[in-house]
Structures are given as C-alpha cells and as structure tokens.
Simulated scan of single mutants.
Amino acid sequence: MRVEELLAEARAQLDRVGPAEAAAVLADGGLLVDIRYAALRERDGTVPGALVVERNELEWRLDPACEHRAARVTDHGLRVVVFCDEGYASSLAAVSLRRLGLDRATDLVGGFQAWRAAGLPVTPP
C-alpha cells in the first residue's frame, strides 16, 4: 500500500470538517487538537482554545481511560477535531483516535493553514 492509499482509506472513515465547522465544534464545547510540531507553532502561531498535543503523544493524551489523558478529555463521546499544518497527518491521527473509541473524532480539511486563511482567530507566535 502507498501512503496516498492509506490516506484515502483513512479519510473514507471520517466526516471531515472545514474551518467554520471546526470553530463551531470548539464553541459548542468540543475539542480542537493541534498536533503540529513546535517549530510550526512558533512560526505561525496557535488557535486559541486548542489543545496542543504533539503527534507522538496523541493516543496517550486523548484516551479517556488513560492515566496520562489531558484533563479536558473526559469521555469517549467527546467531539474532537484534530489538525496539523495542511490536513494530511491529521486524517491519520483522527482514525487512530477512532480506534481508541473516540467515534466522533475527525480532522480539519486544510489544517491550520485553512483555519488561518478563513480569517479565524490565531494567537501570534
């Protein structure tokens, strides 16, 4: 299997959202999760209210049953929107969260760059 096929397979399992819908999820008490690495956050800024969890820690911080979970992750019914820089790695990450039982996990089409291009709030670096 090629990575393009893996990505297509992952995205077929998701109801991906655009920037406006991701903002609505956050406003409604859902969770936006920024999995970009530090250099990108330092270069471009962050989304106010998003939980920053680098990709290598994602499953531990987002599993409601894990002792290392983030405080905001309280149950498997939580609406979670994962985003990376441009919306590729986040698709794979969201599927991983679904495998943990977070059935409402998805990702942001176009990632942080789409969020910023839509004129949504960004905290500068």
Rank of each mutant, 00 (worst) to 15 (best):
M1A: 10
R2Y: 08
V3Y: 14
E5R: 06
L6C: 02
L7F: 02
L7P: 03
E9L: 04
E9T: 02
R11K: 00
A12H: 07
A12R: 03
Q13H: 00
L14Q: 05
L14P: 03
L14A: 00
L14V: 13
D15G: 15
D15L: 09
V17A: 00
G18A: 08
P19W: 06
P19F: 10
A20T: 07
E21C: 00
E21Q: 12
A22Q: 02
A22D: 08
A23M: 06
A24S: 07
V25P: 08
L26V: 11
A27L: 07
A27K: 15
D28V: 00
D28C: 12
G29I: 10
G30M: 05
L32C: 14
D34Q: 11
I35W: 06
R36Q: 02
Y37F: 13
Y37A: 14
A38E: 15
A39Q: 02
L40M: 15
L40I: 15
D44P: 04
G45W: 10
V47R: 06
A50C: 04
L51I: 01
V52A: 14
V53P: 08
R55N: 14
R55H: 14
E57R: 15
L58M: 09
E59I: 07
E59D: 08
W60S: 12
W60I: 03
W60K: 12
W60Y: 10
R61T: 07
D63Y: 03
A65S: 15
C66K: 02
C66P: 08
C66Y: 13
C66E: 13
E67F: 15
H68M: 15
R69H: 02
R72H: 09
T74D: 11
H76V: 12
H76G: 06
H76R: 12
H76T: 11
H76S: 14
G77P: 09
L78S: 07
L78I: 04
L78N: 02
R79L: 03
V82R: 02
F83W: 11
F83E: 10
C84K: 01
E86N: 03
Y88I: 13
Y88T: 13
Y88P: 06
Y88D: 00
A89F: 11
A89G: 09
S90L: 09
S90C: 03
S90D: 05
S91I: 11
L92M: 02
A94H: 02
V95W: 07
V95C: 10
V95T: 08
S96N: 01
L97D: 07
R99N: 11
R99L: 07
R99V: 00
R99F: 07
L102K: 08
R104Y: 04
T106Y: 00
D107H: 05
L108G: 03
V109I: 09
G110A: 13
G111W: 01
G111D: 01
F112G: 06
F112S: 00
Q113R: 15
Q113M: 12
A114F: 05
A114S: 11
W115P: 01
R116W: 08
A117R: 14
A118I: 04
A118P: 10
L120T: 02
T123P: 12
